[in-house]
Design a protein around this nucleic acid. Sequence first.
DNA 1: AAACCGTGGAG
DNA 2: TCTCCAAGGTT
Length: 411
Amino acid sequence: MQRANGVERSPGNVRQRKSATTRHPPAALTAPQVALPKRSPRTPARPAKAAPGTTDLPRRARLLIDWFNRSARDLPWRRTTDPYAIWVSEIMLQQTQVATVIPYWERWLREFPDPATLAAAPEARVLKLWEGLGYYSRARNLQRAAQTVVREHGSRLPDTVAGLKELAGIGPYTAGAIASIAYNQPAALLDGNVIRVLTRHQAWPGDPRSRELNTRLWAEAQQLVDAAARLTQPRNSGAVRNCSALNQALMELGATVCTPTSPRCDDCPWQTTCAAKARGQTDRFPETAARPKVELRYFATALLRHKDRWLVRQRPTGIVNAGYWEFPNLELPDNTEPRTALAQWLGIPIQQLEAAGTLRHAITRYRMTQHLYRADVPRAVALESARWVSPAELAELALTGPHRRLAATLA
DNA sequence: AAACCGTGGAG
DNA sequence: TCTCCAAGGTT
């Protein structure tokens, strides 16, 4: 979808960005942004040429902003200036792709249109709307932060990086994102996209998570957004404000052009100064560290029916996926026979458990295999924090992804 | 500070 | 199928 892009629209007043716009003259070729040997002291003094990588910051910022205003994707959270709505989008977008987030974000804003509504909502409903999105502590933190905003900030989201970072679930990236995108402050941000764009443009080797390179990347991002703040704002009424545009552009570039594999350098506004492109080495940056080893884990899962009801239980506070419901689920130590272990755990005769296939899924470095068993039990089994629920009730409960898919297969 | 947290798309 | 990685934060 490449239409009416990069347009900041206020609700009910959709402004249209003018077409084409002024393109800047072709960028003069400049030195690649890498550490170059220092000019020898004997070199005759010239009208000082600033060090490479600083002179052209304003020009690079301008190129990026213009590119963004020209060709950014039309995403729902780019149609609002409401800091709360932008905040929600930033939390949902943490380690989660745009296409996945869109329906969740729309549903969320419909049901929780402002911090006060979210703060007052039942947690069960908050978890339900996050169901399937993953990283579930984000949902609990978001509600907790909304309660803080209501209680301590008069329901208005703070507009400084420091103030934002005080809130649950807001770290360095998200604080910079909200401050710049919602409030147009010259706050830097660094995410996976920006790391890729900057390490390639500068041809910076090393692990981006190392202290040294990480510090350098933040400094570079800060210089860019500072340069953006000093540029004149495009008069085009649809143009996104400069700091906001610059940071979104860095991420947009990483997401759509400077992609992990096969980057489309011909479409890149920084192609003439990119050191990695100049060397034909875009695939060498960033230097990512080795991933942790994959580990296998096994579970036995019971689909127990009594009359027309299924047994589910709620995960307690303080553990992974707290508050979410699931079918009774037992992790198996190495090579345990699942059916025996499950029958023993539930206290029902082993013959009642009928094998119902396996379910595989992955979370982070773990590869899980769930052995499924069904049983129609004559009497309700008692299990801690468990309930027998009708299919209709089950549909209203918040389940994690694999268990939600499991629920969908039940008759 | 390394480990942990979910899920889906892309190749 | 399998790996990578995505608008990261918390402990």
